[in-house]
Design a protein around this nucleic acid. Sequence first.
DNA 1: GCTAGATTTGGGCGATCGCCCAATACGAAC
DNA 2: GTTCGTATTGGGCGATCGCCCAAATCTAGC
Lengths: 197, 197
Amino acid sequence: MSTTAADRGREARRRLLAAAAELIAERGWAAVSTRMLAERAGVAPGVVHYHFASVQALLSEAALAVMHDLIEQAGAGLAHARTPGEALGLMMEFLAAYDGRDPTSLLFAEAYLAAGRDEDLRRSLGGVVAEFRRALAGRLAEHQVPAPDATAAVIAAAIDGIMLHRALGPGPDAADLTAVLRRLVAPTEPRPSTKEQ
Amino acid sequence: MSTTAADRGREARRRLLAAAAELIAERGWAAVSTRMLAERAGVAPGVVHYHFASVQALLSEAALAVMHDLIEQAGAGLAHARTPGEALGLMMEFLAAYDGRDPTSLLFAEAYLAAGRDEDLRRSLGGVVAEFRRALAGRLAEHQVPAPDATAAVIAAAIDGIMLHRALGPGPDAADLTAVLRRLVAPTEPRPSTKEQ
DNA sequence: GCTAGATTTGGGCGATCGCCCAATACGAAC
DNA sequence: GTTCGTATTGGGCGATCGCCCAAATCTAGC
């Protein structure tokens, strides 16, 4: 039951990372300040620069942690699918929880932009996207989808773009979008019947 | 040859809008300041709040002007295409000029995010995207592409996503991506032959 | 109890922020 | 030349910024 100083320190660090993830989405990357982070995390302002070299470093670490977790989670769900079409359906279902204006979606977008002005962050983030593309391309190749790399890149891009556009207002139903995306992975065209879902 | 006060005023306003478009891309929306804008435009700091109600208002007006011009330009090129596949090719060619890290791409991304925190901007920007989707869906419908609205939305989203991902590092060739996207608009499946690029 | 080392505190530093405004400059109308 | 109206100047206002640091506070080990 004893809480050592190191334990409390780790907890403070953890709370600061969580606060950073929230505030990036709420206020925007450049608008997150030292005192804002400290207040949200329930610590004194000085603690921020005790645990992190700079506010930038804190924001980067927080964003990367969230993104990596989510990509891994999505990838795990993908493994259950038996066909690429099914995998697409699962992914779109997974994405239904994010409307482009929720904290997670905004965190992604903010991180994308911040990466353009921070070389280290850009490299790390590029690695996350590349990893997702590679995993997806592997699944596609297993099912004889032609041009798996390019197809995976387009799907990954479409997903991010769909999230971006959702933030701006209503668009077509997710089910309709999924049906369109399925054209990308249909191994053989099943001759479009007169009626379809 | 006379330059009235009103003429000089209009010129100062124009220069401020141009400076805003540059600085949004360079520094990020939230990091653009009054004095930064004034210096870039070659005017005194006070001029900014003489011509614009706030820095936010200046940034929004500048971003919307650039985006509207570019969408219109892309749409004009689209009118020359004779098939949806050709139109896609033209659009991807048009997009080749933007690698996701150039000022125009960054301006788009910054505006998307800023829109999430400014209701007026969000509405205006949503209108721009909707207008593009509508124009594209119209062209698709003319050529019997199924589900033209959803297809247009996916294409628009894929384009923005591709630009976003390009900023993070190299991906598949544009030509390969275009070939994949063409699957979305193929009116009838030409029975995939043994070889295809 | 006492020391050693890690963590927290809370305010200070100079710089910068958005916005404002009284004073000034300057061409147009008379 | 005088008046009038618009545009510009340049500094001031209080607030906030990132980062720093000496002092205070804690727990573990002796």
